[in-house]
């Protein structure tokens, strides 16, 4: 019982770093919302006309999405979708795809 309590305490301490620390799957789950069009883990179907995001440089993804959000980069749909995500969420997504092989 004592051991279990100490585990709970440790978990609470670990969660103290904020919502992201408390939800280790958050980046994966957010990135999965892109997969319908951009492929599972960013591996888009080749030749289908949609960008593969797997392995894309994080800064490049962030710039692209920022340009969609600001309207600098013309789009049919991404300028509307990207506004549904906070900057923190976009950061997590860009990082997740950058680490996919």
């Amino acid at each position: 019982m004592k051991f279990q309590l100490s585990v709970v305490t440790l978990c609470l301490l670990a969660a103290g770093g904020g919502a992201q620390a408390a939800d280790p799957d958050l980046a994966r789950n957010l990135a999965a919302s892109c997969a319908n069009c951009h492929g599972t883990d960013g591996h888009a179907v080749k030749g289908a006309g949609l960008d593969a995001l797997a392995g894309m440089d994080k800064e490049r993804t962030l710039q692209k999405l920022a340009d969609f959000k600001s309207g600098v980069r013309p789009a049919t749909i991404m300028h509307q979708i990207v506004k549904g995500y906070t900057d923190e969420q976009i950061e997590l997504i860009a990082n997740y795809f950058a680490t996919q092989k």
């Binding site: 997969a35 319908n36 951009h38 492929g39 888009a44 006309g49």
Partner: peptide, 13 residues
């Protein structure tokens, strides 16, 4: 064209 690309990708996903 994007609609057809959407279909191919969501089917694979």
């Amino acid at each position: 064209l994007l609609a057809l690309g959407w279909a191919k990708n969501i089917w694979a996903d």
